[in-house]
């Protein structure tokens, strides 16, 4: 069964076609990779799915049986789509635990008026949310930093927090935009382990945009390749790495067979 079905998705910025007629299906429970050179439209694809931009007529995005084409971001989020941003966009002026609690906003159930009157149920709900978020922080290894302002965290910790905040919404679909960017190889491994553990524990479906080929090849069962806003290939990692067009798209020139082999070995 497909959790996400995209048909004919297009996006233009002025005269520039960032995405042209993308079809994409993501199976329930899959870890699906999206690769492609810089500027090929990967982040734009996430922005379309999560409702940041309005899609063009003729585009259709169906999530979990619901047509979400053109719905506002917060509604899509509440249906179970969580994402991270390439630039992270964590709430730097808030503490780590507050970042997590904003992530849980859609599942926090009490009225502001009840909060003003200091109703007991509000206090117990706050305690529940805090405890659940602490548990999640524990899982991603940030529990010690719960009260620290997020702006004080290191790069690797910020990436983990961005992941944690997305997970705080208990999503069905988790979309990660270049989660490994700027991380050392060890930290990439830690992050990947965390993603895999989360995926298994919560039965998630994950889409990963990644630049680091190795990361995608090791983790994903299906990989889609974008170039100039078009999907040029799709298949298992093995199929993709045998595809000349993919590697040429990456390196921006034609290559001989030996070169391709070398590249794959080094990547």
């Amino acid at each position: 069964m497909n959790l996400l079905e995209i048909k004919g998705l297009s996006k233009r910025f002025g005269g520039f076609r960032a995405l042209s007629g993308i079809d994409l299906n993501v199976r329930q429970g899959a870890v699906h990779g999206i690769i492609g050179p810089n500027g090929s439209g990967k982040s734009t694809l996430f922005n379309m799915i999560s409702g940041v931009y309005l899609p063009e007529p003729g585009s259709q995005i169906v999530f979990n049986g619901t047509d979400i084409t053109g719905k506002p971001s917060h509604e899509i989020a509440r249906l179970g789509v969580a994402r991270t941003f390439q630039m992270l966009r964590i709430f730097e002026g808030m503490s780590v635990i507050e970042n997590m609690m904003v992530g849980h906003h859609g599942l926090t159930g009490y009225s502001p008026l009840a909060a003003v009157f200091g109703v007991k149920s509000v206090r117990s709900e706050e305690r529940r949310v805090r405890a659940e978020m602490m548990e999640l922080l524990n899982f991603i290894g940030l529990a010690d930093y719960a009260e620290m302002p997020a702006g004080e965290m290191s790069g690797g910790q910020r990436r983990l927090l961005a992941l944690g905040r997305a997970m705080a919404a208990k999503p069905k679909l988790l979309m990660l935009d270049e989660p490994g960017a700027g991380l050392s190889p060890t930290n990439v491994d830690i992050l990947l382990d965390t993603v895999r553990a989360l995926q298994q524990r919560f039965g998630l479906t994950v889409i990963i945009i990644e630049h680091i080929l190795k990361l995608v090849m090791d983790t994903c069962e299906t990989v889609s390749v974008l170039e100039h806003g078009e999907k040029i290939a799709e298949g298992t990692p093995a199929e993709i790495s045998a595809d000349h067009r993919v590697i040429e798209a990456y390196l921006g020139r034609e290559m001989k067979d030996e070169e391709v082999r070398d590249f794959l070995r080094s990547a």
Binding site: S50, H74, R78, F85, V102, R165, A169
Partner: peptide
């Protein structure tokens, strides 16, 4: 205040 895009992606109207 911190980031409208990220707030919306977290389900904030």
């Amino acid at each position: 205040r911190e980031d409208q895009l990220a707030a919306a992606a977290s389900g904030v109207h």
